[in-house]
Design a protein around this nucleic acid. Structure first.
Lengths: 168, 168
DNA sequence: TTAAACTTTCAATCATTTCTGAAAGTTTAT
DNA sequence: ATAAACTTTCAGAAATGATTGAAAGTTTAA
């Protein structure tokens, strides 16, 4: 396979994965494009290579900046803004884990903890089933949350080293 | 808060989380409803409680069956089909991990491994950046895959015990 | 200043996904 | 056999999410 075809496939695959994960397809594609680009790209480059509009490119670049997955790079003597992606995969994984924790795990944990305080007759079958599920879930999601915290502080080799050793 | 309100909030929260994870909102809501229900529910019950059409209820029940998150339960002397959810949270987590691994991780890994074989001049900056990213990613995704395998075989207490011990 | 270069916004449009509900299909009891 | 009870399907409608592109906004250089 040649490079052009391979790039196309990589960008397409990353885009699909993104949308399966609730991330805008174009955002994932822009990220993919920057990930494999040896130098910084400007908005025009991205519009061209991905065939998207200026507005779309701008919005998704901004969102990637929000996630801190990419950053601006100034090219001396050029007024345009250029963008580069963080290339370290472990760092990328940590950024994604951090963002998803913040946006998904934490709010759910909050709701679940609130729901523990539902009041009523504890001999009611309905209520019993409800509180039991909520307690179990809140316990589980709490552990997940702590696990992510741990991962956020960890070094890659140590993390996978320990995890993968568990299987032996 | 009373039970009715709490149930509503639980179902709504679970639905939102689902759609952030690329899972159909109604599917997640049906799952939530069955999770907190002490007894099996039939299609009618679900249509009523979630205000969805018969077609929608049917399709999402089927999909939950596919995931093996719920199962049919026959009530003697009744022709209707009733559904119950798996209640064990660790088991649920494993089912979800298994499905997502199969649908998301494995296909991506396959593509990434294919992309390692891109041919061309290795002194080309573009190609070098591409292969480096692909190799790093494939390495990382491979480790994630193995970690999920490990989790699928593990016992909950041991798994979180080990993970959470790492933080100390 | 001012005008060129560049970035951002947002109403309208387009694309995709989800949902509806009536009709077709299936099963069961008699 | 048949009709009632129940389940599944699927074409079209609705809802949601993504994208466009032109206009407004901002920055910079001279």
């Amino acid at each position: 396979m040649n490079l052009t075809e391979a790039k196309k496939q990589f960008i397409q695959t990353w885009g699909t994965l993104g949308s399966e994960w609730g991330i805008n397809r174009t955002m994932a594609q822009v990220h993919a494009l920057l990930l494999i680009s040896p130098n910084a790209l400007c908005t025009e480059d991205i519009m061209e290579q991905l065939n998207v509009s200026r507005g779309n490119a701008n919005m998704n670049l901004r969102e990637l900046m929000n996630w801190t997955l990419i950053s601006k790079e100034l090219v001396p003597g050029d007024r345009k803004e250029y963008f580069v992606a963080e290339k370290d995969i472990w760092e990328i994984a940590r950024i994604i884990a951090r963002e998803r924790k913040r946006r998904e795990i934490e709010p759910v944990l909050k709701v679940l903890n609130g729901l523990k305080e539902v009041e009523g007759d504890q001999s009611d079958k309905e209520l019993k089933a409800f509180t039991e599920t909520v307690n179990n879930l809140s316990n589980f999601v709490g552990k997940m949350d702590k696990s992510v915290d741990m991962m956020l502080k960890a070094d890659e080799n140590w993390f996978f080293g320990t995890i993968l050793k568990m299987i032996k």
